[in-house]
Design a protein around this nucleic acid. Structure first.
Lengths: 238, 238
DNA sequence: CGCCGCATTGACGTTCGTCAAGTCTAGTGG
DNA sequence: CCACTAGACTTGACGAACGTCAATGCGGCG
């Protein structure tokens, strides 16, 4: 069984602006091109890594869609994030040399495998890469801060609105329609991420539909009134 | 008004095992000693930095106790963490060169100021420091993951139990009593951190007291039954 | 002394979770 | 082609947990 090991170069990857620092010299670019050891294909439903597995690499999503989820010993299950093209998976593994969550593909996907030792080695030579790595980790910390605000102080409508707006913006940044898209995750997965039950997610979708903010058909979403949704997100419905 | 700018060395700081990588050579230690530009004293209630302020340094808590809190434009307020001796504050500022939260001293405190440019510079020379910085950021990401699980799926008793156990462990690691301590934060701040209202925090303290798990007198806490508290945390009260 | 901030406690209301029934779709196999 | 099943989603009825509002107590400070 052959692994998918096409030789790849970040320097001519169409996701470069998302993944890589800008303004590198040719020599630096050549060094950074050595970051990606290989590409790996992951089938829908398969895991990129599991909790407890040895950490060795970070992964950049090239195509497809992932979720990361924690499974605690007492059976609680929590989705901690959804990742799409250009986003980095695996940062949780650095601290203890083991992954602390599962990363599962929600559709057939392809990732760039970047051995972490190589990242550290090249970072020591290329200051721009070093800073870029720091930024990526900081961004993840800030993202989680805002998720904590969501989980700590928003009601069901605010949570779902915030989620949809965030998804819409990320799709837009990747050249997809920000107003019409297909959800890759189930109601239960959305609920786990947002700290609510799947029934409440479903009810809230219905409520948005009645308010003419959305059209929902199972996993197909069309945003009708982005402003209204933004108001719902900010808790100023009335 | 003179700033407190005593020259300091990490190499003989008693918090070294908490802050710094281990196993450095003498030459590396000397380099790492250059990390801390100065110390800064912060009075109780004062901010180490505010949201929007330019980011330039990370801060290591030497003494005292901090909270970090987000204030969103729509007036929501969320405590995102409490930091004690040996912990690092300011990681949120890296990504956009501006701080995205306030860091406020909950008691008179002293911090080591580490200019981030200097951290990056020395990291490029000392691989152990580089890896240490990565670990600190990864640890923060993992901490926030577990807080998300707490906020997403735990009830009031589980949340407060988890909070107290975590606090107890961190105090223990610093040589303080793990079973008897003084809370530096108000019920409202605990509530904000744990995603519940201050009244619920107060009621849950009372409930734990009735269950003989704790003795509570305002902010003075004595843990009577750590096992019981751990069971409460894991949601196996019955 | 009176004020203020913080904490506690009670009464009541709302939101969301729980449980259950029912629909729709895709996939399987006869 | 159709019957059958499993999984995902929707919707309703009900109840529990927690938020809201309000009264009260307590300790510190000017």
């Amino acid at each position: 069984m052959l692994k998918d090991t096409i030789k790849v170069a970040c320097s001519n990857c169409n996701l470069r602006e998302l993944c890589m620092p800008v303004g590198l010299s040719d020599a630096e670019l050549a060094r950074v091109d050595e970051l990606v050891a290989q590409r790996r294909s992951i089938k829908r439903g398969q895991a990129l890594f599991h909790t407890g597995e040895k950490f060795s690499s970070l992964f950049a999503v090239r195509t497809g869609f992932f979720k990361t989820c924690l499974t605690t010993e007492d059976g609680r299950d929590q989705v901690t994030g959804f990742q799409m093209a250009g986003e980095i998976i695996g940062l949780d593994g650095i601290v203890n040399d083991r992954h602390t969550c599962d990363a599962v593909a929600l559709e057939d996907a392809e990732v760039c495998v970047m051995p972490f030792e190589r990242i550290e080695e090249i970072s020591r030579e290329v200051g721009a890469l070093q800073h870029h790595v720091h930024k990526i980790m900081s961004r993840e910390i800030v993202r989680e801060h805002s998720l904590m605000t969501l989980l700590g102080s928003m009601n069901a409508e605010e949570r779902l609105a915030a989620f949809l707006i965030n998804l819409s913006q990320r799709l837009k940044a990747r050249g997809y329609s920000p107003s019409e898209f297909h959800l890759r995750m189930s109601r239960a997965e959305i609920g786990s991420y947002l700290g609510m039950k799947l029934e409440t997610v479903s009810r809230t979708f219905s409520a948005f539909q009645q308010q003419r903010l959305l059209e929902v058909d199972k996993r197909h979403i069309r945003i009708l009134d982005l402003e209204g949704l933004t108001r719902a997100f900010q808790g100023q419905v009335h």
